[in-house]
Amino acid sequence: MNLYAESRGGALVVSVNEERLDAAIAIRFKERMREVTSQPGGRVVLDMSQVEFLDSSGLGAVVAVMKSLTPDRRLELAGLTANVERVFRLTRMDTVFVMHEDVEAALRAGLRHVG
């Protein structure tokens, strides 16, 4: 499970460096996300631009990660590929996540809220 996390502009940006977020990797994804978000901090931006395939197990894992964060800490999604975005839309889970075109857009949106 390849995750890369860095602090940028008051947000924790976590890049999922995997082509697939599926049943084979969902549990490890949740565990690794719990580790990288264990320190308190600002909102979490999940960069999914490398992920080309998401199944319902992967979707469930993303939801679980959002629920595991403290109530004042938001999970936002960035860079969804068309294939991944469709799974969110088909399950209507696109209505409960804040989604951004890419990480840069997510960081700009964060600045607007602060300003």
């Binding site: 469930g60 209507r92 209505t95 409960v96």
Partner: peptide
């Protein structure tokens, strides 16, 4: 059908299959 606002972590599979 899993209701999005209840933040379901599963139960999507058969609906996706049936829909598609």
């Amino acid at each position: 059908r899993p209701a999005p606002d209840t933040l379901p972590e599963g139960g999507f599979g058969w609906f996706l299959i049936r829909d598609l």
